[in-house]
């Protein structure tokens, strides 16, 4: 019973950890470079979640000062993560661009095949 309660109270964190591990696993275990990038994105997403979770105050509003509201959500993590998302998108875009070039150069996006090709030289 207690376990379920802990799980429920930390639901977001559990998801964070799951996404993190899943992302990392994909990065490590998959040879396909596109899949690696997907894994990387999932991994990054878990961190977004970690920041956002505590920033959302239940019952809180957007931090616009008004006498009617007393409880605000913390805006800073949201802003930070907005930046992090931009960074993540840039990384993903660059990664995909590299994959395109690798595909042109090697004719495949699978790491094992690429290593095999470089080994032949």
């Amino acid at each position: 019973m207690q376990a379920i309660q802990v799980f429920a109270e930390h639901y977001n964190y559990v998801v964070t950890i799951f996404l993190m591990m899943a992302g990392l696993y994909i990065v490590i275990a998959r040879g396909n470079m596109i899949k690696k990038l997907i894994g990387l994105s999932i991994f990054q997403t878990s961190v977004y979640l970690l920041y956002i979770t505590p920033a959302k105050i239940i019952g809180g509003t957007a931090p616009i000062l008004d006498p009617a509201f007393k409880v605000y959500s913390n805006p800073l993590p949201h802003v930070l993560i907005l930046t992090a998302i931009v960074v993540g998108v840039a990384t993903l875009a660059l990664g995909l661009a590299l994959v395109v070039r690798i595909k042109e150069a090697y004719g495949t996006v699978d790491e094992d095949e690429i290593f095999a090709k470089d080994g032949e030289q």
């Binding site: 990065v27 690696k36 990387l40 990384t91 990664g95 994959v99 690798i102 090697y106 690429i114």
Partner: peptide, 14 residues
């Protein structure tokens, strides 16, 4: 170089 950059991208991002 492309491959190295990609590998570094993965590791660096992690």
């Amino acid at each position: 170089a492309l491959l190295s950059a990609f590998q570094y991208l993965i590791v660096g991002t992690i």
